[in-house]
Nucleic acid binder design. Structure first.
Lengths: 205, 205
DNA sequence: GTCTATAGATTGATAGAC
DNA sequence: GTCTATCAATCTATAGAC
């Protein structure tokens, strides 16, 4: 083929980086996956990091599309938030094997203080902003909506990390159920704001 | 030196693996850190994986000692659970830079289906069992205590992952506060078990 | 635009002198 | 027990033919 070789490289690199990490993924691996020669890479990219940059850009686009899809799927914010949590079940098998694509890559690049780590952090920012919008649509103020967004994002990351080592679908299902119940309890109308009232959470399940 | 060279190797490898990951850590790095020659490693270890195995064993010992220390620090289960959560603040700077030592290594080895991944999972099992004991001491049954233990473990992992990319101490402090409030709400006496009662959680903060 | 050939460095690991 | 010297493989990257 001719034109979309670059795109094939990015797609193969995306998969390999997710499945085995960035440091472990070599040009030889990608070349085998795409079916091209090693020396062919430097016509499309100047360095390995440049491939990573393209992979991150592709993931940012895919994430934006996914978030837009969730908005089309449900017209009320609670339903949209449920889509986010449901993701843990939809991709349960992949998460159990390779963890969260965002969290694991961010962790690897963060350790190395890699110059592209901030780019991966933009993926987190994308989810954070979208979740914050949903909580604001539920009636929360910007600051509280942001805190709730980060809390839900934190839960998804924690579940993904443990899912990879526990290999226990029951754990994931229970935490998903708990997160959904937590969402339902976050609407200001469902949780009347009595200032300084004793907090009262039961979870999980 | 003579006798404790092996111990020095393990200590240096432990630090480097935490700071930059296992795949990225080479014999050259460890040799520089310890101040020995590269060829000297194979008198103490047969392979790189054998060093990793020794590092994991050392971490298991250190974790057991840490858990025992928390038991000595507080004689009631709630105080001990607070020690666990407090860990996120005590090691906040390191977690912000390199993530959780357990979670990040488990993630890296899990991706590769590395033969030593189950050994790292033992670290999770250590925390899980200890946390379950504390929740049982609070009066919870074994199954529910285990679920609560995993939930708290999940939170610690989620906070660690996001802390590394957000670099926002406010987020960590808020989630720590929320986790502490969650712990206080988990005592059966604090949360009377009305079967099928509507769950009511507010968090974070 | 894709290939082969190769450079130059680094990897994990071995052999053998001291 | 530690060293130097070295091996074979692999790494990212380059040069140049087609």
């Amino acid at each position: 083929m001719h034109a979309d070789t670059r795109q094939q490289i990015v797609a193969a690199a995306d998969t390999l980086i997710y499945e085995q990490g960035y440091a472990t993924t070599s040009f030889a691996h990608i070349a085998d996956a795409v079916g091209i020669s090693r020396g062919n890479f430097w016509h499309h990219f100047k360095s390995k990091d440049e491939i990573l940059d393209a992979v991150i850009a592709a993931r940012l686009d895919a994430t934006r599309a996914m978030l837009a899809g969730w908005e089309a799927c449900a017209d009320e914010p609670r339903g949209r938030l449920r889509c986010f949590v449901q993701m843990l079940l939809d991709h349960g098998e992949a998460i159990g094997r390779h963890g969260c694509p965002v969290g694991t890559l961010a962790g690897e690049l963060g350790k190395l203080a890699h110059p592209l780590h901030p780019r991966v952090a933009e993926l987190f920012a994308l989810f954070r902003g979208w979740l914050r919008q949903q909580f604001q649509a539920l009636g929360h103020g910007p600051a509280r909506a942001d805190a709730l967004a980060l809390h839900l994002l934190m839960r998804s990351q924690g579940v993904a990390v443990l899912a990879q080592s526990l290999k226990d679908p029951v754990f994931v299902r229970r935490e998903v159920r708990d997160a959904l119940a937590w969402i339902d309890a976050q609407a200001p109308e469902a949780a009347p704001r009595r200032r300084r009232a004793p907090r009262y959470h039961r979870s999980p399940r």
